[in-house]
């Protein structure tokens, strides 16, 4: 099979998949049609609701969710890289902190939501702090793993060049970069789930709050708009991350598949 025919049939399968999803959705909304309560709105109902909400609160909610996810991700990742490098290269820190993280990692960050609300109240930090935890726990493990498996020759070279502590840490971070990037990308993907669940519980603004209000008024189309916007955000974030990595670290093979 030539390359061209291959792409052609792949496109055919992709089209078939899209038709299958849309067809299945329409079929389900006809099966579960009820004049009193819209349990499964059709795709066009959801599209209309998307436009309606786009004119009112959707943009503000999306912006709030993006701020929480990205703010928490950046802070958690910086902390994760810092602590991870220390755990990987400094023995006393490793002895003390790794068991603590081993324990804390078993309590999922999402289980912290009620405590975060008690500590920070309902607002930005009760949600962003959950994303900080998600990113920290992921990135710290990958960073420590990457840093502790540095080529011994590299460390010796650094010693014989009498590098300062800061320079040695820089060498450690850069040679652990492939592992760190895998952790960063995973954390970015997990952040959206954390944001939506935190907003559902501590609902004032955000996509989760939008869905929550939709649920309270039995507006299933509004919930579905939230689900779709969140999926689009997750997709866009992943896309941007992979592109940015390719531009910044073109020699790193990790995360190549989208």
């Amino acid at each position: 099979m030539t390359a061209r025919a291959e792409t052609g049939s792949l496109l055919g399968y992709r089209l078939a998949a899209i038709l299958f999803i849309l067809g299945g959705w329409v079929l389900l909304s006809w099966i579960f049609y009820s004049p009193r309560l819209e349990l499964m709105p059709t795709p066009w109902r959801v599209a209309v609701r998307l436009v309606e909400l786009g004119r009112t609160e959707l943009l503000a909610d999306t912006w709030a969710s993006v701020q929480e996810a990205l703010g928490g991700w950046v802070l958690g990742s910086l902390l994760g890289i810092g602590i991870g490098v220390l755990i990987g290269r400094v023995e006393p820190v490793r002895l003390l902190l790794r068991p603590v993280l081993d324990f804390l990692r078993f309590i999922s960050p999402l289980a912290w939501v009620p405590l975060a609300i008690l500590w920070f109240g309902i607002g930005y930090w009760s949600k962003a702090s959950i994303i900080v935890l998600i990113s920290l726990f992921t990135v710290v493990v990958n960073t420590a793993q990457g840093v502790s498996s540095i080529d011994a020759e590299l460390v010796k070279a650094g010693k014989s060049l009498r590098l300062t502590f800061r320079q040695r840490m820089e060498v450690a971070v850069m040679s652990a970069m492939p592992d760190i990037l895998v952790g960063l990308r995973y954390a970015l993907g997990a952040a959206w789930g954390g944001v939506v669940i935190a907003e559902l519980v501590a609902g004032d603004v955000g996509i989760g709050a939008l869905e929550s209000y939709g649920g309270q008024s039995f507006d299933v189309a509004q919930i579905m708009v939230g689900m779709l916007v969140l999926a689009a955000l997750g997709y866009a974030a992943n896309w941007c991350f992979v592109r940015a990595q390719r531009a910044l670290f073109p020699w790193i093979v990790a995360n190549r598949e989208t």
């Binding site: 399968y13 999803i21 349990l39 559902l200 689900m227 999926a231």
Partner: peptide
Amino acid sequence: ALAAFLDPIVDGFRFVLPFSMVPLLVVW
């Protein structure tokens, strides 16, 4: 053939998070 058909579906639904459908399931 099945892989080529299911790959885009799985890739799409990968981003539809389970947590985001909780309110929907409460209604259902």
